[in-house]
């Protein structure tokens, strides 16, 4: 194995640069090193001004999503050896405004997440004294997959619809809405449907399917959105055929 590997990192400093450029670093190539370790090596030993986000280094906090050789990846789970020999190009997540070097602005996602009402909605809250809402393992299994989203936003970077139309709610936000819709304890599906069944919501999705491919937690947002479309259509037909059903 070669001793080092070349890292090409996108740099951007809003105070100095009009547009981003690539900077090259030679970093040690080690079997257990991931792209994030290489970035930390640069920050600690070579150039302290390189900015990026990271925290847990075990694929659960969702901070370190970046583009590695053009593909959205969690850099804590992407080994350098997979790219050797050759260069590793690290860029900020696509489709988001770049704040600095590898750091992108995700406030848009948080606003969209809030709008999708990702919390349990009940018509009537059950008092704590009456114990838990019963839920069988099968009912748990019905939404479990969608609850695994770590908000790493790789799916937004993979979604051309979001790239072309920043108003699109996007894969993770819709998947999380669906996570609560599918939860047997939740009664808020109608409220969320009103919000998400418009052109910027589920109908914005053209089913490219790449969000599911890049998801590190196998959440399958593409599936969530298509299933949501099916529900929305069924609800629409029901309301047309049986207008007396009402709210």
């Amino acid at each position: 194995m070669a001793e080092t590997i070349t890292l090409e990192v996108q740099r951007y400093n809003p105070e100095k640069d009009t547009e981003p450029g690539l900077q090259t670093y030679e970093v040690p190539l080690k079997k257990e090193w991931v792209v994030l370790d290489a970035l930390n090596y640069v920050k600690d030993k070579v150039d302290g001004s390189l900015s990026f986000r990271w925290s847990c280094r075990m694929g659960i906090c969702g901070s370190c999503g970046m583009m590695v050789n053009g593909e959205p990846k969690l850099t804590c789970a992407t080994f350098l050896t997979d790219y050797a020999p050759g260069t590793v190009r690290v860029e900020p997540l696509k489709h988001f405004p770049v704040l600095r070097d590898l750091v992108v602005d995700i406030t848009d996602f948080l606003a969209k997440l809030s709008r999708a009402k990702p919390w349990l909605i009940r018509k009537q809250e059950k008092p704590l004294a009456e114990g838990e809402y019963l839920q069988t393992p099968e009912q748990l299994d019905a939404f479990k997959q969608f609850s695994m989203c770590i908000n790493c936003l790789l799916c937004y970077a993979a979604c051309p619809v979001y790239g072309l139309d920043p108003l699109f709610s996007g894969p993770a936000a819709i998947a999380l809405a669906q996570r609560y819709n599918m939860d047997s304890r939740d009664q808020g599906a109608a409220q969320r449907l009103d919000i998400l069944s418009h052109s910027d919501g589920i109908w914005g999705c053209t089913f490219v399917g790449e969000c599911t491919e890049v998801c590190p937690k196998h959440v399958d947002p593409a599936g969530a959105i298509q299933q949501y479309k099916l529900t929305a259509t069924t609800e629409w037909f029901k309301s047309m055929l049986m207008p007396w059903r009402g709210e």
């Binding site: 919390w119 349990l120 704590l128 114990g131 838990e132 019963l134 839920q135 069988t136 009912q139």
Partner: peptide
Amino acid sequence: LRLEHWGCPWNREPDGH
């Protein structure tokens, strides 16, 4: 239990508890 009421996906017994 409060967290359960807020939606935390706790593992369940077959009877739903």
